[in-house]
Design a protein around this nucleic acid. Structure first.
Lengths: 233, 233
DNA sequence: TAGGCTTAACGAACCCCGTTCGTCAACTTG
DNA sequence: CAAGTTGACGAACGGGGTTCGTTAAGCCTA
């Protein structure tokens, strides 16, 4: 009677936990990034936990907070930014760097939005800043102006990605922006009305190149005009 | 027996609904903005409904979606942007306009984040665009370049506000940015290390003025260089 | 080898969120 | 007065982040 059939129990029903690979910060970050760049593009603690075959609470051993996790995932995403062993002039390489940065952020809408929300402060952010400083130095920009310029340049790239994230490019003939512009009454907004074609003209590519050019020229002119008297610093 | 004491019932307990002010899109938007700019700075459908003394479902008669509500609230917030009957040169008035725009967005972190998430396409966004076009025209910028410039300028203002929203200004001696910069090893990130003082130098005010100057100079130089051959358009 | 401590992980719960559905009271209209 | 329309409602669904108390596993020591 106390003899039990060894084949009776389908599963051992061991009270001992199944042998699973240990959780790790890295696995969590990896899975988080995977979710962000996946189809639905939404990352959540619960989904990460489920993917790692555990409960939501377990993650808090490796990550203090959702915001911390986001910062970590963002920096991981920035790993893909190519900081350029590329050939060519500093101007060309700067273009490539900014383009790569923007492209990575645009790889998923969620990543782009995270980049605006959480300022990247990880090894990869430093790597990018280092490269930018190098390029600006090559361009003859003094250190004080270059230091401020990297903030402006990365901010620009982030903003472009974020704007692209919600499909609100001007230039999309049917987007909400286009509708708003076209609906603008000529008598109330004469200049907007007059310039409506130009406002929506150009591909994202062209507008990006134009903007980078504006920024570079602005930085250069500013740098030169203060060459003998650097800003506060 | 059927005579009932008129003072017996404390409350009438009428099956008729209490006379309440009708809900309206406007009241909803107003309350939403109030919540965003309030202390905790978080707006939610449920809280709006509760504040208006109704259930969450009722709001859907006036608003199709959460994202639509956000767009409406954002434009309402932009009402506070002063588009300038100010005196002075176009340059000065442009500065004032951008400053006002940024200040409004910074009035609450949540507003700033909403501005990055949702592109503003309402009457106030048009009003601001109209003013910017006027100022740029006064500056001698051709219509095609001005059209692209307003996108860049508003994008910049939005990004500044968003960066400020999460308290990640460089220049805060104890912020996460400062910590990351200071922790950057000199051998791995020599340029960042060398420029660490400059990276964190300056007040928000100074950096803002510097950035606007960069943008304006860039736009002007670009506009002049293509004066005889406007970009695609 | 037995006991106790530390670490890793877990399940359940709490409260918030946006959204949908079926329903009902009040008003409007015939 | 009856029927239809409108505005509002309560309840529920599925999902989210976070906290708490508990338990199992591994390890060190007596």
């Amino acid at each position: 009677m106390s003899q039990r059939d060894p084949f009776g129990a389908v599963e051992v029903e061991s009270r001992r936990r199944a042998a699973k690979p240990l959780l790790s910060r890295d696995a969590i970050i990896e899975e988080g990034l995977r979710q962000l760049t996946s189809d639905d593009g939404a990352m959540s603690l619960r989904k990460i936990a489920k993917a790692l075959d555990t409960g939501p609470a377990s993650l808090y051993a490796y990550v203090t907070d959702m915001s911390e996790l986001q910062a970590l995932v963002l920096d991981r995403a920035l790993e893909a930014v190519e900081v350029g062993e590329a050939e060519g002039s500093w101007r060309h390489r700067l273009d490539e760097l900014l383009r790569s940065y923007t492209e990575v952020l645009m790889s998923s809408p969620a990543v782009a939005l995270m980049a605006v929300r959480t300022t990247a402060v990880g090894p990869n952010a430093l790597r990018i800043a280092e490269a930018l400083l190098g390029l600006l130095a090559e361009a003859g920009v003094d250190q004080a102006n270059a230091a401020w310029a990297i903030d402006l340049l990365t901010m620009f790239a982030t903003a472009v990605a974020a704007e692209h994230a919600q499909g609100s490019d001007p230039g999309a003939p049917d987007g909400p922006v286009a509708q708003a512009i076209n609906r603008a009454p000529a008598d109330e907004y004469p200049r907007v009305h007059a310039a409506r074609k130009e406002i929506m003209s150009g591909t994202g590519e062209e507008r990006f190149a134009w903007s980078v050019d504006v920024l570079v020229q602005g930085i250069l002119s500013r740098a030169r005009s203060v060459a003998t008297r650097p800003p506060s610093a």
